[in-house]
Design a protein around this nucleic acid. Structure first.
Lengths: 342, 342
DNA sequence: GTTAGCACTCGATTGTGTTGAGTGCTAACA
DNA sequence: TGTTAGCACTCAACACAATCGAGTGCTAAC
C-alpha cells in the first residue's frame, strides 16, 4: 500500500491537531476541518490504512488516533509547512539577547532564557568545546602562600581558571615573568594543542620545570574531563511540566533528572553536523528517559573553528516548525553577538 | 493550659512519626511506641489539648493529627535531640568535596551535590557577595579590534570578567601597562570600595580617562546587579519530587519555578547572621510558593570578611536534625577547603 | 488520673450503571 | 468503484451508592 495525496493530507491534519491538543484525534474532527472535504466514514477508512502502515496508533478501540514516531518523522521531513517569525518577535528576542552582552556566559544564559520563552519548551545550550578555543592570554596570579590562580583567556572571551601550587618562596614578579613567557609561547594555539607546545617548552626550560609540569597537568585534566557543569546551560525546565504528557510526577522526575546531569546533556547535544538543524524524534535519541521527547538542535559559531550547540527538548508532539524557526534565528543571532567583539 | 512533660513527649513522638511517614498520626500509633506508656484514650485526650493549643491540626474528623508550623518551631527550638553524623559519612562527604578542589566553582558545585545527596532534599549555595571580595589582580586582555576582556581575580580565587571597548589603535602593550597600574592601585581593596579608588585614579589620570571610566562603569554595573546567575548553585532539585507533598504536578511546578529564579533564591538565602544555623519554617519565609517548605541555612567563610550561604530547602516535615548536622559539617568543610589555598 | 468500650465520622476503596466519543462494517448511492 | 449514511459495538470516563476501616470524642468504670 502506498501513501497517496489524500493520505498525506489526512495524516498532516491529524498531526497538526494532535500537536495542538494532545488528545487522540477522531475522524469527525478531521472531517470538519476546512480543506478536507470527506465524510467521517471515508476518513475512518484512510485512518485504518494509516494505522496499518504504522503512521497512527490507537490508544484503545474507542479512542481516536495518535501519530506514531514514524509519522512525526514523515511530518518533519516532508509534510511540515514552515512558518516565519514576525519581525516583532525577532526584535524582541534579539533585544533580550544583547542585554547581557558584556559577558559571554551572560549572553548564553540569556539565549537559553529567550529560547525557552519563545518556544515554551526546555532549552539547552552547550558552550563550544574547550579544546577548539585558542589561547589569548595566560596569567598566574598569586592568591596565597604557595598557591596561584592560573587564568586562561581564550579568543572568544571565555575564561577558565584553576588553582595551582607554586614552589615555596616564588614571588609575584617571578610568576609574572612566567605568565608572560607562557602567553608568548601559547598565544593563538588551540587549547588541545597545548600539550605539544608545552612539551617543547619543558624540554628547553631549565628552571621551573615542576611548576610548568603541574600547570600542563591541570590544563590537560580539565580538557579531558570534557567540560564543566557551567558549559551546559538549561532554560525553562519547568515549561515541560505544563504539558499533560508530564502530569505524572514520576515522568516529570525522570525528565528533570536528565536535565540535572550536565554530562548526559552534553553528550546528547554534541553533534558533528554543520549549521543545519538536526531533529531526533522519540527513541531516536538513545536515552530511555527521553523516549517520548524530541530534541531539535542547531549550531552557533564563536571564533573561526569553534561550534557550540543550542537545542530544544520538548514532547514528541512539539511544534516543530516554530521550534526550527526559533532555533535557526537564535543560532544566527547568538553567533553574531558572540562574534561582535572579534 | 500549659505544656507539661507528657505533652512534650507526645508531641515529639507525633512529629517524629510524621516526619517519617507524612501520614496523619493516630493515637494508637503513639501508644504503641516504646517510651510512651499510655493507652490510646489518654493520648487522645492529650492530643485534643495539643490541638486546642495550636500545635496539632486535624485534616478531617476521622484522620489522625498533623503537626502545625507552631509545633515544628517548638520542635527545632526545644524538643529535637541532635544526632551526630558517623565518621564514615563525614569522610565520604569530605572526599567528594575535594574532588574538584582545583576550581572554586567546582568545589561549590560539589558541595551542592553532597548536600542534596546527604539529605535527600534540595540544596542551594550562594557565593559570597562580590562586593566583599578583595581584588588581587586586574588584567585587560585584547580579544579583538577595539575590544578587551577585563579579568578581575579576587583574593579567594573567584574570577570575574567583562568585555570592554577600548579606544581605536590601543595595542597590547598599552593595555598591559594599564593592567599593571590598575592592579597596583586596586590590589587588596574590596570590590565595593572600587568606586573611591577609581575616582581618585580618574582625578590624577591624564590619559585613558575614557577607558578607565568605562572600566569603572562595568565593574559598578556588575556590583549593583547583585550577582550573576552562576553565583547561586542549586543541587538535587528533583529530590523534592520524591516526597508525597509534591505528587501534585502544580505544586511541583511552582516549587521548581522558584529554583529557576536565581535572584529570588539569593534574596531568600542571604542573611546577616553569623555562623549559626538559621531555620525558617513554612510561612516564616515570605514566598507563598514555599509556604510548606522549610529553609535551613548556614554560612561558610572565604577569606577574612566574606561569607557565603549554604542551605537546604525541604518540606516542613523535614528531618531537621540531620539537615542541621549536615549543614554544620559542610559549612566548616567548605570554609576549610576554600581557605586551604590562602 | 487512666482506660475500656462504644457510637460516630468521614475519606478511601470498590462496585455499578450510564454516558458519549469513536470505531468497524454493511449496504446503499452517485 | 469510490463515497457515505446508518448502525451495532467498544471502552474509558464519570457519577453515584455501598462498604470499609482508621481514627475520634465521650462516658462510665477502675
Amino acid at each position: 500500500m502506498q501513501l497517496d495525496e489524500r493520505k498525506y493530507l489526512i495524516l498532516q491534519a491529524i498531526i497538526d491537531d494532535y500537536i495542538l491538543t494532545a488528545m487522540p484525534v477522531g475522524s469527525r474532527t478531521i472531517s470538519r476541518k476546512s480543506g478536507v472535504g470527506y465524510s467521517p466514514a471515508t476518513i475512518r477508512n484512510e485512518m485504518s490504512d494509516l494505522e496499518e502502515l504504522g503512521y497512527l496508533d490507537q490508544p484503545h478501540t474507542s479512542a481516536g488516533r495518535v501519530p506514531s514516531n514514524k509519522a512525526y518523522r514523515l511530518y518533519v521531513d516532508h509534510l511540515m509547512k514552515t512558518v516565519k517569525l514576525t519581525n516583532d518577535e525577532r526584535e524582541k528576542m534579539h533585544e533580550h539577547l544583547i542585554s547581557k552582552s558584556k559577558q559571554v556566559e551572560g549572553v548564553i544564559r540569556s539565549a537559553a532564557g529567550v529560547l525557552s520563552d519563545a518556544t515554551k519548551y526546555t532549552s539547552v545550550i552547550v558552550a563550544p568545546k574547550l579544546g577548539t578555543l585558542r589561547i589569548k592570554h595566560v596569567q598566574l596570579v598569586p592568591v596565597a602562600e604557595r598557591t596561584a590562580l592560573m587564568v586562561i583567556v581564550t579568543n572568544v572571551g571565555i575564561v577558565k581558571d584553576a588553582l595551582i601550587r607554586v614552589p615555596d618562596g616564588m614571588d609575584a614578579d617571578e610568576l609574572y615573568a612566567i605568565s608572560r613567557m607562557l602567553t608568548e609561547k601559547l598565544a593563538d594555539k588551540p587549547l588541545e594543542a597545548v600539550r605539544q607546545a608545552f612539551s617543547e617548552l619543558l624540554r628547553n626550560a631549565e628552571t621551573n620545570r615542576k611548576l610548568l609540569g603541574e600547570t600542563l597537568q591541570v590544563i590537560e585534566k580539565r580538557l579531558e574531563s570534557g567540560g564543566d557543569a557551567s558549559d551546559v546551560i538549561v532554560g525553562g525546565q519547568t515549561n515541560m511540566l505544563e504539558y499533560p504528557e508530564y502530569s505524572d510526577v514520576n515522568k516529570a522526575r525522570s525528565f528533570l533528572s536528565v536535565l540535572e546531569s550536565k554530562d548526559t546533556l552534553r553528550n546528547l547535544l554534541n553533534r558533528d553536523g554543520g549549521m543545519e538543524i538536526s531533529i531526533r524524534i522519540g527513541p531516536e535519541n538513545q536515552l530511555p528517559a527521553l523516549s517520548d521527547c524530541s530534541i531539535v538542535t542547531a549550531s552557533y559559531r564563536v571564533g573561526d573553528h569553534s561550534n557550540g550547540t543550542l537545542g530544544i527538548i520538548g514532547p514528541t508532539r512539539m511544534n516543530y516548525n516554530r521550534v526550527i524557526s526559533v532555533l535557526e534565528f537564535m543560532g544566527r543571532a547568538l553567533s553574531d553577538v558572540l562574534s561582535e567583539y572579534r
